[in-house]
Design a protein around this nucleic acid. Structure first.
Lengths: 122, 122
DNA sequence: GTCGTAGTCAACCCAGCAGTTGACAAGGAG
DNA sequence: CTCCTTGTCAACTGCTGGGTTGACTACGAC
């Protein structure tokens, strides 16, 4: 679980943490402000923030005894890149399959272009 | 944790499961095929697949005693939508801040457009 | 100085998850 | 039919994660 991608996904798997991110996208906030709407303890929220910080989604500065929390949007790119990669790959495969099926249909199902059968053919 | 978004994020928080998704984007495969490269038991991989299935990332059909696994790419859209939403929101906020700062700089820091100060002003 | 505020740290509990092994079901193959 | 393959289900273990409470630090206010 040490890789950042795993940490980011794990961090966002919790609804409360996603809500924190959501509210932080609206502007920086202190721990107390963030904790107020929930009925969990301040310490629990502080822990959640630590998880987000560890994942690189959030940074905390130091202003007197206050700890303003700031959203780091760049990390989203990491996820987006990963997601897009496999979505596109999967979509490309479907399109290829569609093309093959269309070709089969057009040719009359007699010459199934026997060159490449990788994948679904078992 | 019942909402799908949480399940999807949690499912992808595991490197092995991400690897399964990665390999499935290359084409359907059986449980045995998928389990082969790892040094964990077949049952463990089957469990991982169940997690992915529960999250809607994967579907299993039935072919004799074989259970071909198929990647469902649509669920990625759910994540992408969530991510994009907050990334754009955060980026927009930065741009607004930049604009305000630029304006301050241009005006000579005497008329800080005192209408809206929400957010970072403590 | 004392008090109150903002937040972290540490210890502890409970639930869930990843991994294991063992037994079992479902279908071909001989 | 029996055997083998493919895979699931069930029970158990160990670890991690989210929650709590209590004590502590750091800073500003009085």
């Amino acid at each position: 679980m040490s890789d950042q991608l795993s940490q980011v996904f794990a961090a966002l798997a919790d609804p409360l943490r996603r809500d924190l991110v959501s509210r932080l996208s609206d502007g920086d906030a202190t721990v107390g402000d963030l904790a107020a709407p929930y009925d969990v303890s301040l310490q629990a929220v502080s822990k959640h923030l630590k998880v987000l910080e560890q994942a690189g989604l959030v940074s905390r500065s130091k202003d007197a005894q206050r700890r303003p929390v700031h959203l780091e949007a760049e990390v989203f790119d990491l996820m987006t890149a990963w997601i897009e990669r496999y979505r596109r790959q999967a979509e490309a495969r479907y399109q290829r399959l569609d093309a093959v099926l269309a070709e089969l249909d057009a040719d009359g199902a007699d010459l199934p272009t026997p060159s490449r059968t990788r994948g679904a053919a078992s």
